[in-house]
């Protein structure tokens, strides 16, 4: 049986001023329904580009991405708008709408579909409670902490009742303690709602903490994929090297952000 998300031979090259830049070079991935799947790689490995291909923010040059049996790379513009309902996305920089209150940020995807006021109100309150933002609905995102902002980002993605949630470095701008809270939130969403989560990160700990299975992305290629425990216990030689580096980089990041305060 085909898995829930099947990515096959995905290629993407950006045309830049200095010439073509191949970013994804034949990605093959398969993700099961209801799992938390981790993708790890250094900055510039192509993680965000891969994520953006899945919800059509980027059009791949070749290959296919089947979500629940539908190839999203072949959808018309209108079909893609509809499909995005089923694929939520959470960002490293939150990307909240600063002109709107927390309530209106969360309500956004219902507003653009002209949902009835009473339904919007009911769903916003339900999702806000799930992410623990009930008290903040009238506030503007500008006045929230990083962790609260990311909760808004998650709520905003969840209200459309997606089947898949793509988390692109959702915790990378947060301190370790807040990171843990957000990872817990994602895990509980995964358990309670059965939402498949694609967790993209450069933080080893986040993957270890949350994921069932994972893939290692380097230079636009998947160099290894499988169960997290297997990969950690018996990494492919290149992955092992990467882990050591990622680990040091991670520590270094922490050191720097600590020193910056």
């Amino acid at each position: 049986m085909a898995d829930y998300i099947e990515i096959h031979d995905l290629n993407k090259t950006f045309q830049t001023r200095t010439g073509p830049l191949p970013v994804l070079n034949g990605i093959d991935l398969s993700i099961k329904k209801g799992e938390i799947f981790g993708i790890i790689g250094f900055s510039g490995a192509g993680k965000s580009t891969l994520a953006r291909c899945v919800n059509g923010l980027e059009i791949p040059d070749a290959g296919s991405i089947e979500v629940n049996g539908r190839d999203v790379t072949k959808l018309s513009k209108q079909e893609m708008l509809e499909e995005r309902r089923h694929i939520g996305m959470v960002f490293q920089n939150f990307n909240l709408f600063e002109a709107k209150t927390v309530y209106e940020n969360i309500a956004y995807s219902l507003r653009i579909r002209h949902e009835k006021k009473s339904i919007v109100d009911e769903k916003v309150k339900e999702v806000a409670e799930l992410v623990g933002l009930t008290e903040k609905l009238d506030a503007y995102p500008g006045g929230l902490s990083g962790g609260q902002k990311q909760r808004v980002g998650i709520a905003r993605a969840l209200i459309g009742e997606p089947d898949v949630l793509i988390s692109d470095e959702a915790t990378s701008a947060l301190d370790p303690q807040t990171t843990l809270q957000i990872l817990d939130l994602l895990r509980s969403i995964n358990k309670e709602k059965g939402i498949t989560i694609l967790m993209i990160t450069h933080e080893l700990d986040a993957i270890k903490y949350s994921c069932d299975r994972m893939a290692v992305l380097e230079g636009g290629k998947i160099i290894e994929q499988g169960k997290v425990v297997d990969i950690f216990h018996n990494p492919h030689s290149r992955t092992g090297e990467l882990f050591t580096k990622v680990f040091f980089q991670f520590q270094n990041d922490e050191f720097q952000s600590g020193a910056g305060i």
Binding site: R52, R84, M89, N95, L96, Y108, R156
Partner: peptide, 28 residues
Amino acid sequence: EKGKIDAARSLGSTDFDIVFRVWIPEAI
């Protein structure tokens, strides 16, 4: 920030939604 436009797109916005519900209000 382009990220806000991406976020609006990822939520299923039409081009019109993006300009009039996100882009202009953010720039006010």
